Amino acid sequence: MTHCFFKVKTQFENLGDALINRELIKQLKPTEKLIICIKNVPTDFLKNLDIESAVLVNSSIYFYYLMLKSRLSLNNVNYFLNPGGYGGKISPKKVIMYLGTTFIFSLFKIIGIKVHRVGVSFSNLSTFHSYMLRLQSKVLYSNSVRDSLTFEICRKLKIRVSKIVPDLAFTLAYENSNLEKTYDIVISVRKPNNNIESLFIALDKIVKSAHGKILFIYQVKFDQDFQERLYSRYKSYDVELRDLSKLLTENERLFSQCKYVVSNRLHVLLLAMSKGAMPLALIDPAENSKIIGIFKDANIFKLIKDYTNCNNAYFSNADITTIQDIFINNHKLINDFFTDLNK
């Protein structure tokens, strides 16, 4: 029998992380048994996950005990690490954690527990961080990245990579409602570290080009202050501001009611695309390389606008059939990956 194990450990205040965790769990559910550790996971975050048929464990020790017991019973045991982005510097404490988990994964490898990292991207890695990832990749059963840009980074840094598996958000079912749209533009923008005046110039042009109501939203509490600042900047226009940081279902309903979505957050863009909204990735390439990699692989690079160097019209429509095909094709690649693991 195949038993899958997954420990929910991520940024609980980020609905984008809730999305890819939910979609990973959906991919694991067809196995004979799915065990999920939910220790320290907030109740609001759990509401976004599809965990009804899984065995839920609220103790890390018991979780790993069940994993060892399953393997000693000669089951095929797969342990999945959290999807998402890795980048930047790491603290001395984090280095010690990497070394500890790498040692544990080495023991797992010896006894036949397969550890998988899937749906990840790497950017702006410090020397220590890249070394830790390189060391850990040697003991993983599979280390799959979500875009070719990350694949190339790994090749240069000698981080072992199994293959490219698209972002897990591409498992979403594509829907495009023919109903009249409530909002012309939805804007959800994280405050950039640099070039903020360039961002304001770009947003000024976008807001002035609107042919209907504009809605500012935040999926992440971290974005609230900046979205409120943008709302105040454009309050002379037909604008609203909403907090959508609690439930994915609220975001899904909203995106089906809007024509365009402007964001520098990857999973705002992908979730909006899945509901038929046309995305505009408004980015600084120095800060948003994961969006560049994933959009480039999906052949929708023209939907990216670099606000630090852009004099052209901002909105570029992609063919709806093309976007639908992107979800269908990437969904198949993801399904094939998980099907192969369970053979």
Rank of each mutant, 00 (worst) to 15 (best):
K163Y: 01
F128A: 12
I164N: 08
Y141C: 00
E175D: 12
R146Y: 03
N143A: 08
Y174Q: 02
V161S: 10
T150W: 01
V115I: 11
V145L: 09
G112C: 03
F170W: 13
H116F: 08
K181T: 13
R146N: 07
K158T: 11
V145Q: 05
S144M: 05
A173P: 03
S142Q: 11
S137F: 04
S126E: 09
T171G: 09
L133W: 14
V145S: 11
K156M: 02
I111W: 03
N176I: 10
I111R: 04
F151H: 13
L140S: 09
D167S: 11
K181W: 12
D184L: 13
I159L: 11
T182H: 11
H116N: 03
V120S: 04
R155A: 13
S142G: 01
V165W: 08
S121H: 03
A169L: 05
D147I: 07
T171N: 15
S137G: 14
K158P: 00
R117T: 06
V115Y: 04
E152F: 06
V118S: 01
F151L: 15
N178A: 06
I164C: 08
P166R: 09
I113A: 05
D167H: 06
P166Y: 12
Y131K: 13
A173W: 00
N176E: 14
T127Q: 12
A173L: 14
